[in-house]
């Protein structure tokens, strides 16, 4: 009798405990990551989520496809060259996969990786820009190259060198400007800059008793930028240069240039 009572009291307890335990097990099982081979030498490993990805022999769209990696297969990413990723399959085969196909693969955490894609986001977050422009500097052709670094979204520092090919002399200059781009998130945006630099005027060797002048210079610039797409920006700018030749003489030059730059 006492045994029966003991069993009767214990039974509901057991019946209650079992579903609770099973619930905890189920939660633990869903949290555990699915089995994967151990990762090697710090290279990123992704899993194919599409039915298959195509593996080519070289980093270009014309190279032949010699291999495919099927769904749930793991790929190790070795290196990236422009938009192509060199991967190694589990079987040890190496080849190149393009970025569009890589974007649909999953990382070890089970999430899609965002591979570097030149979208508007990249344009908005651009830091370094290299560019060149051609134009007119006081009616002579000028060639200008610049590098700019976006310190914040609105302010940038730009260094430029320029070369003017005149009929009787050549002028070369360098400048460092502070640029303000208040509408940096627009595709077509104006920008303003002020800066200082040095300007050097070298007359042609064939001229007699011509003097080379080397002086400090200040400049003010206003320009327009247009994001062409991918990594390229077109630019037009107007600059006023004031060359401080001597204590009581300043020369003014006006330059208009149009050019192209790329950012990364």
């Amino acid at each position: 009798m006492a045994n029966l009572r003991a069993i009767l009291t214990a039974l509901p307890l057991v019946l209650l405990a079992v579903p609770l335990a099973r619930a905890q097990d189920a939660v633990a099982a869903s949290a555990a990551p699915q089995a994967k081979p151990p990762s090697d030498d710090g290279l990123q490993r992704v899993q194919v989520a599409d039915p298959y990805v195509e593996i080519r022999t070289g980093p270009g769209r014309g190279f032949p496809i010699t291999n495919v990696a099927k769904k749930t297969e793991w790929l190790v990413i070795e290196i990236r060259h422009t938009d192509w990723f060199k991967v190694r399959t589990e079987a040890g085969k190496e080849g190149w996969v393009d970025r569009v196909q890589m974007e649909n693969t999953l990382t070890e955490a089970g999430a899609k990786t965002s591979f570097r894609d030149v979208l508007v986001d990249d344009y908005l977050r651009r830091r370094v820009e290299f560019g060149g422009a051609w134009g007119h500097f006081s009616s002579d052709p000028v060639l200008k190259l610049w590098t700019s670094y976006n310190v914040t979204e609105i302010f940038a520092i730009e260094g430029a060198v320029g070369q003017v090919q005149g009929s009787y002399s050549g002028t070369n200059f360098w400048q460092i400007d502070l640029l303000a781009q208040p509408w940096a998130d627009k595709r077509l945006e104006p920008f303003f800059g002020i800066g200082v630099g040095r300007i050097q005027n070298v007359p042609n060797a064939s001229l007699v008793s011509a003097v080379t002048t080397n002086s400090n210079m200040a400049n003010a610039m206003i320009g327009l930028r247009y994001h062409l797409g991918e990594r390229f920006i077109a630019r037009v700018d107007w600059t006023e240069y004031t060359s401080l030749v001597s204590a009581n003489r300043t020369d003014q030059y006006h330059a208009v240039t149009a050019g192209l730059s790329f950012f990364f």
């Binding site: 555990a32 990123q44 990236r80 060259h81 070890e108």
Partner: peptide
């Protein structure tokens, strides 16, 4: 009713080397 016990995983995003 039930507080799930999920172990927190450390996800490290590896840097992919490039040669551009």
């Amino acid at each position: 009713v039930i507080e799930p016990e999920v172990a927190r995983r450390d996800v490290q995003v590896t840097h992919i080397p490039s040669n551009d």
